[in-house]
Nucleic acid binder design. Structure first.
Lengths: 370, 370
DNA sequence: GTGAAAGCGCTAACAT
DNA sequence: ATGTTAGCGCTTTCAC
């Protein structure tokens, strides 16, 4: 049978309280006593029963992470980052897939499974800004993403507008004036698509470039196939463009495939930039310029402030909105054609592909912006 | 405060035992009594306390899934599949990332966290066949992958040798005779690399094609960059080849990038085939022929037999080894050049990219082999 | 069919 | 600085 506190106490010749104190690092224990308890624990290979601890303390030591789908690279990389952060903080992550479905997202907020977690990091996709009231829950909740703003909970997200503006400005600096967009959502104001499109328009305005609605490629979803379809439609429409801003990397890679199929060269004929800095963006042909939206920082911050709320003793402080820093990552897909220096940078980037490990990528040509 | 069994019992005017019986679907309850209990449960919005239930019953309703890294697409897609299966079976999945590190893998097998799960699905990467004894654990364990064979537990895996042989035969049928390999591990006999290389050699032997060690590209890891590096080395060595069998899709996509950089055309100059059927393989340029190793089936089977073990009452039956069916997926990267019919197939595949949703992919040109 | 009571292993008051 | 004790909410004998 597996050892309990009682067994340890008996062997060590102390009471269970003393053993409990040792385990929980309480102060005021005589070193000699502590030593004996530790030996007894080792001898019995004692491990605290987590169910009993949870039942008594009301804490589980787990936090939830709700996201649309692990098979979407962005969320897989986010989950990876959250799990690593949680580990550093000594807690366990329980992942929930929602499929981006609004009803499942709402259901999950009051699911019995919430008992298993002390708090939740929630990246909704189906929920809209009008659903903010659903986020009034009786446990610590940290919101991610750009579906809901001004809600009742802490919110960690990225600088969508600024980053999209920076991406567009980067294309403009390369001399591009006819910049198509892939992934626009019709009429959306907030949400990733709406915000990033706003940044795009701000950049155009600032540069005095007229906005042309014909350059917008609309999609509902943001999978690779949607990027490809949107690009086919843009090409079929006959509209002229010399650059593409894909509202995420996956879309952009789909669009690039269609551009290349059509015989167009990237970046010579059309420069492309994405958003997310997926691992994959380092390995496409050409390598993809993109925005690093600060995913690691978002994961770390979300875990940290969730644990702050969980451990808070004083009454709840008002919800915070925290924005991660972003960077423009310049790669081959926006390398200036013609300039010798630029060409060097492009080939240097290509040449490092072999050394860029997936474990510690060192993106070529990085510009810090904020 | 949250309602307990006592509250429900009081409202319904019965004892807590009766309420418990209703909740656990025990037989022999008078319909009228059951009805009253159900109403009380609804009125109080009662949900059983899972910690208390676990403490008493020794069951948690969770299963563990240990894998190297979620940011590797193969494992993200595997995790997705396992979570969906588990959901169908009414259990929750707790994911553990090992980083493929042997020590962490061993540690995890006896981690306190195992208390939180009723059983474990374990996909090791650092563990070797000599470590099989570590798998003798006191809880239900299902092994995945090809690191350990003949161990003490149930094992669900893929037909590596047969599938690799089928992939190579597919290239040979296209008239290829000089088939390079990317991802070989020096001296490995079992493990994904060793087994797949064996299938490759079997296909060569059967076709009377001599094996040429100069055609092997070695890598330690299987990230995209390793595929790129191995291909650079092959090209630099001056060895001639007309096809590449990449031991997984990620490696193959890395190798393809280098081939294209070098001005080689796929499939005209070099045909390529991978292994895994990642989502991504449908969207590369050209689309990647590959092996669907039966990932969905593996996930479903692993969950099912793990739950069988967890719920087993009779003494443990001997460990089983279960092999999933595989398929060769033909896409553009191995389309025969020259034949009109083949060209049509290639362009049809390209043409459907727009319709292939990530939710329900319908791969173009599928051959069922087993 | 239903009830009463014990106790899973732990933490947290309260005592000493 | 250490011991005693009372539950946390549930399942599970064992009665009736």
């Amino acid at each position: 049978m597996v050892a309990t506190l009682h067994d340890v106490a008996q062997i060590a010749g102390v009471s269970i309280k003393t053993v409990s104190n040792v385990i929980n690092d309480h102060p005021h224990i005589r070193p000699a006593t502590k030593q004996r308890v530790l030996e007894a624990i080792a001898e019995l290979d004692y491990h605290p029963n987590l169910s009993a601890r949870s039942l008594r303390s009301g804490r589980t030591g787990m936090i939830g992470l709700a996201l649309p789908e692990l098979s979407l690279s962005y969320f897989a990389e986010l989950a990876d980052a959250v799990i690593r952060s949680a580990e550093r903080h000594g807690v366990t992550v329980l992942i929930e897939q929602t499929g981006g479905d609004r009803d499942r997202e709402i259901g999950l907020l009051s699911s019995p499974r919430r008992q298993l977690t002390d708090g939740l990091i929630f990246s909704p996709l189906g929920l809209g800004n009008d659903d903010a009231d659903f986020l009034k829950v009786g446990y610590p909740l940290v919101l991610l993403g750009e579906r809901v703003f001004g809600g009742p909970t802490d919110h960690v997200t990225m600088r969508n507008v600024d980053a999209a503006r920076a991406a567009t400005e980067h294309l403009i600096r390369q001399g591009r004036r006819r910049i198509a967009v892939v992934g626009a959502h019709d009429g959306e104001v907030i949400g990733s698509a709406g915000l990033r499109l706003r940044g795009y328009r701000e950049a155009l305005d600032a540069a005095g470039i007229p906005f042309d609605p014909a350059l917008l490629g609309f999609t509902t979803l943001w999978h690779r196939s949607n990027g490809a379809t949107a690009m086919r439609e843009l090409l079929a429409s006959g509209v002229q463009f010399d650059a593409v801003f894909g509202l995420n990397d996956t879309l952009t890679l789909g669009a690039m495939r269609v551009l290349q199929e059509a015989g167009l060269h990237i970046p010579e004929d059309v420069a492309t930039i994405g958003f997310d800095d997926l691992d994959e963006a380092q390995y496409s042909l050409p390598t993809l310029s993109t925005i690093d939206p600060g995913r690691e920082e978002i994961a770390e911050t979300a875990v940290r402030i969730l644990l702050e709320r969980i451990n808070a003793t004083d009454p709840a402080s008002p919800p915070r909105e925290i924005l991660a820093d972003f960077r423009v990552i310049e790669r081959e897909s926006t390398a200036t054609h013609g300039g010798a220096g630029e060409r060097m940078r492009a080939s240097a980037a290509a040449g490092t592909v072999g050394e860029i490990g997936a474990s510690a990528p060192a993106p070529a040509g990085v510009t810090a912006l904020s």
